[in-house]
């Protein structure tokens, strides 16, 4: 059975939109609903859509980085946001913010919590990618009769 063209094209479009939404949620996080984890989950939903549409190949096409590199980098960034205040002699995880006057966007409050959120975002995305890497199938869904996994054939 071949993959449906409608499914293919529509998931491509929705995936990109969802990813943009996830980044918006990440940035909006501090004072409005959103944040790193929620952004990451929405991003994860985008990846899931890509998997539905194009299988594991399209999930891999997102990035050339290994999933655990993304996850590790996220954890590094998040833990830095705990360590930097300590090094500066403040309480662990203490936050600061600056108000910026940016063109187009107007007055924007940039908080150091955003750094932590970005770390969490990368961590969640890395984990979702890893889950697909571990559980997803090489072949596109529906392209073969049985759902035999690649590994474990020996048993």
């Amino acid at each position: 059975m071949r993959r449906s063209t409608i499914l293919d094209v529509s998931t491509r479009m929705v995936t990109v939109t969802t990813l943009v939404l996830s980044i918006y949620l990440l940035a909006a996080g501090h004072n409005q609903p959103g944040g790193g984890f929620i952004g990451g989950l929405v991003g994860g939903a985008a990846i899931a859509l890509a998997y539905v549409g194009g299988g594991l190949e399209r999930v891999r096409a997102f990035t050339r980085l290994q999933p655990w590199t993304i996850l590790g980098a996220g954890l590094v960034v998040a833990s830095l946001s705990a360590i930097v205040p300590l090094v500066m002699g403040r309480a662990v995880l203490e936050q600061g913010f600056v108000s910026l006057d940016l063109p187009v966007l107007g007055k924007v409050k940039a908080t150091s919590a955003l750094v932590f959120d970005t770390g969490v975002y990368a961590l969640v995305l890395g984990m979702v990618l890893m889950a697909f890497e571990a559980l997803g199938e090489e072949r596109t869904p529906g392209s073969s009769t049985g759902s035999t996994p690649g590994r474990g054939e020996a048993s």
């Binding site: 655990w68 590199t69 996850l71 590790g72 980098a73 996220g74 954890l75 590094v76 998040a78 833990s79 830095l80 705990a82 360590i83 300590l86 662990v92």
Partner: peptide
């Protein structure tokens, strides 16, 4: 608490 978390993160990156 913080050191091992940071260590774990680094450990993944230098995997």
């Amino acid at each position: 608490i913080v050191l091992p978390i940071a260590g774990a993160a680094l450990s993944i990156v230098i995997g």
